[in-house]
């Protein structure tokens, strides 16, 4: 009986001792840090400063590495692809383009107005023809009344109203902005082209401006639908 008592007591004592020791160690821990004298602190600061400078050097190295990677990346295929994509977007009319160009203004003939003749709205065929003509003379970017002309642009009459991609063209004047790398040539050729005479028959006058520097053609606003386009399968 007495032995049992002692064992129970001993077990509890061991647990208490263990708890005491753990508590002692836990509480004691911060006090060690506070007993450093000035010299030790100085050494500590020095060590920390060294660590800091080492880390700074490391940061600098890593930044240099990052910038070198950046350079490599800019010369990589991805950039080439991106560039191509940008060029394609520019070509397909999805970006704003600024450059040398001319402004063609179509408005009713003043004489016809004087004579009281009815001015019909512009015929889509005529406009299409003008665009074809412009394209023939190496026009690169065209916009009509702020609507960009792209490959899929539709110019047609809907309920007697000429529309370009759904945008009505019933009001005069109609402004056509044309950008080209050889503006002078384009201007000269369009001035003498037959399409101008066609406009004249419809009681419309066509004014071709002098070459304008920094003419801006807006991007195509609608989404370009490529219904029948599919990525080619692997060969």
């Amino acid at each position: 009986m007495k032995k049992d008592i002692k064992w129970g007591f001993t077990g509890i004592s061991i647990i208490v001792g263990l708890m005491l020791a753990i508590q002692f160690q836990t509480v004691k821990q911060p006090k060690i840090a506070d007993t450093r004298d000035g010299w030790e602190l100085r050494t500590q600061i020095l060590a920390e400063q060294q660590l800091q400078s080492k880390l700074l050097t490391e940061i600098r190295e890593l930044e240099a590495q990052a910038s070198s990677y950046e350079t490599q990346r800019s010369q990589s295929k991805e950039t080439a692809l991106k560039q191509t994509l940008g060029e394609l977007k520019r070509e397909s009319g999805q970006t704003k383009v600024t450059g040398d160009g001319i402004i063609i203004t179509i408005k009713p003939l003043a004489e016809a107005e004087l004579l009281g003749e009815t001015i019909h709205s512009i015929s889509p065929e005529l406009l299409k023809r003008l665009i074809n003509e412009l394209n023939m003379y190496h026009a690169e970017h065209i916009s009509i009344n702020g609507q960009r002309v792209v490959n899929t642009t539709v110019i047609r009459e809907i309920n007697g109203e000429p529309k370009i991609d759904g945008l009505p063209l019933s009001n005069y004047p109609i402004t056509v902005r044309v950008l080209s790398s050889d503006v002078q040539n384009l201007r000269d050729r369009i001035k003498v082209s037959k399409v101008i005479e066609q406009f004249f028959i419809d009681n419309l006058s066509v004014e071709v401006s002098d070459p304008v520097k920094k003419l801006t053609v807006p991007p195509y606003q609608n989404a370009i639908k490529s219904k029948y386009l599919e990525p080619a399968g692997k060969e």
Partner: peptide
Amino acid sequence: LPIFGLILGVILGLLTDIRIPEEYSNYL
């Protein structure tokens, strides 16, 4: 024997270097 056990516990605790987190030291 209990006193010996107490000392044994303390030695064991010190030797094993167990430390509990600061926030639990109140409970202990």
